[in-house]
Nucleic acid binder design. Structure first.
Lengths: 341, 341
DNA sequence: CAGATATTGTCTTGCGCAGGACAATTTACA
DNA sequence: TGTAAATTGTCCTGCGCAAGACAATATCTG
């Protein structure tokens, strides 16, 4: 099935009664084009519904104007924010966004170049955990393939990056929980292949150490950043005889899972058990009680990262590292430690 | 910034010591190519990391191998399912998926052709409410631009479509609520610009009429398919003196909002008030109590719709209309009417 | 081994556009 | 009005690949 024939630059030239070269000059913002001519060409183009064939432009310019957004299925909310940010930046640009969801980033790390080349991408936005994958970074770097990293936590010099300070954020959340009187604080860690998992853990330990509170290693559970994993981990924690008074989940999906586990066990969240999350994704305001969390500017990071990538492709100046601010958002899932008033 | 030069078909021909034509024949599965030759070319291509330049192929074939997924910001869960389905179908294909989120589909309906042409798309998957937008359908049809419709509820002959029977599903849910003893059933409608909103409403009314139960129009609230709108609508409903005993929200996000409203008012969901949703999106299992809902095969529809689109583009046979089954999923957000045992 | 068939090669064109080199024409300015 | 500067036009090449026409070999069959 074929769409009807598109107008070409030749048609526009004929319609406007000017040379092809002139049409080309108008569409490429060449200098020394009179306003009159510009208008005439524009009108002819409009009447023919002409748009430059971006494929042909790509062939000439050895570029496709296609950017890839590479991600491994984390929570839907995170993905949607990433996409919103990237797409917003590309509004009105020639660049278009291709989505590249993968099951496991590490599984295709070796073939990352084949992956981006066969899709004819100009550049790629890497999100966690791909943004920390040494093989991916190495392959792309040595091939000189343009990329930007969103929220990496390791290898600071491996490429332009947009980050938040995961450790500091986790520290702040932990301090908040401590201030509420909590001492037996459990942690549900995220996917171990995401280095941010370790960064958040580090922040937690630092805050605990600063107050001379011992971390009960038995209360550190492994999760996978997904709802179910958080629910299961919380269930194990809450069934312990020495139940923690607070659970710090490393993202909101797992925190929501923890809240679900508490409900299922008949525990009152906030009164019997405090639950904190991380990310401030949409789910944090959709469960009851609403989740105390760290607001991460995922949208902003994605938009800024895309901006950096475009700048790189256009040989424009760009920042090499941008740190985006986080903030603690207190809601109703956390409260003072039980037994106090 | 430029990536390092890619190998071309010429390089492969030289490396393999064969003609360019032969390389071309191998990569395009031409007949009459010996296995020996095929292998020699493959090896040369591998050693050079050669991939056919899809942009050049596109120029020759007057196609871009780019498909668009067009959607208006409904719930993140719905979007993610759509994308998963579409991407899954394109695994291993030359086609790539471009995401086209828009604020309001109706706002760009007039320019839909400019939209798809400037992005050089080969075809487009329309999702609600765009899949029902008469202007969009008209423009695309008269231009002969390939598209598929996901879950439209109107204009059955306006193009290939993958649907579920919204009315029947709503009927089944309503019957279920009636069977639980509910009579005062409120409805939170979805975005009025989505025709599925009316289809679901129709199913509701039919089920009520079949049991001779009068629909209390005061209990029909307008929502927008989003969490907040559901929460606000439910708040209004629950503060009425003649509170309904059940709320049927037309999607899960709004149902989750309704549950939130109930929590905030200190009402026990299922015991004091039943809440039903629609879609069976991820959120339905993430709030407490878990939401009784209609399972819609969004993933399957998106995958099948993409399959149809590809078939259209390849001039292969394809179905013109496929109906995908729904199913009632009972969870804990619904229960017998209060006051009974 | 001759003729038929299968395979590989040569040559050419064109997809739609960008942009260099330079000539022709128009416009601006003194 | 004359000359310089600005604008528009002509001509041409090439981006990487597909595919048609057809010639040159290679392989198979009886």
């Amino acid at each position: 099935m074929q769409a009807s024939r598109r107008a070409t630059i030749i048609d526009v030239a004929r319609e406007a009664g000017v040379s092809i070269k002139t049409v080309s000059r108008v569409f490429n913002d060449a200098p020394n084009v009179s306003a009159k001519m510009r208008q005439r060409v524009q009108e002819a183009a409009n009447s023919l519904h002409y748009h430059p064939n971006i494929v042909a432009q790509g062939l000439v310019g050895r570029r496709s104007y296609l950017l890839g957004l590479f991600y491994e299925n984390p929570s839907p909310n995170y993905v949607v924010e990433l996409q919103r940010g990237a797409v917003e930046r590309l509004q009105g640009e020639r660049y278009r966004l291709i989505v590249l969801p993968v099951e496991k980033a590490s599984a295709i790390a070796d073939n990352i170049l084949a992956y981006v080349r066969s899709a004819a991408l100009d550049g790629i936005v890497l999100t966690p955990p791909a943004s920390d994958n040494p093989v991916i970074l190495e392959r792309l770097s040595e091939a000189g393939f343009p990329f930007v990293r969103v929220a990496p936590t390791t290898a600071p010099d491996a490429g332009p990056r947009h980050v938040t300070d995961d450790a500091a954020a986790a520290r702040e959340m932990t301090e908040y929980l401590i201030a509420l009187g909590h001492r037996r604080i459990a942690v549900i860690k995220g996917d171990p292949s995401h280095p941010s998992t370790e960064a958040r853990m580090r922040g937690f330990r630092e805050a605990m150490a600063a107050r001379d509170i011992e971390v009960a290693e038995a209360l550190v559970e492994q999760g996978m950043f997904q709802f179910d994993s958080g629910q299961r981990a919380a269930q194990r924690l809450l069934e312990r005889p020495d139940r923690p008074t607070a659970i710090f989940a490393q993202n909101d999906d797992m925190a929501a899972g923890a809240i679900m586990a508490a409900h299922d066990l008949g525990l009152k969240v906030s009164e019997d058990i405090s639950v904190a999350g991380f990310d401030d994704s949409a789910i944090a305001r959709m469960v009851w009680p609403r989740i105390t969390t760290i607001h991460q500017p995922v949208f902003d990071m994605a938009r800024a990262a895309t901006d950096t990538l475009v700048a790189m492709l256009e040989d424009a100046p760009h920042e090499d590292a941008v740190e985006h601010p986080f903030s603690l958002v207190t809601r109703q899932s956390t409260g003072p430690v039980p037994g106090t008033s």
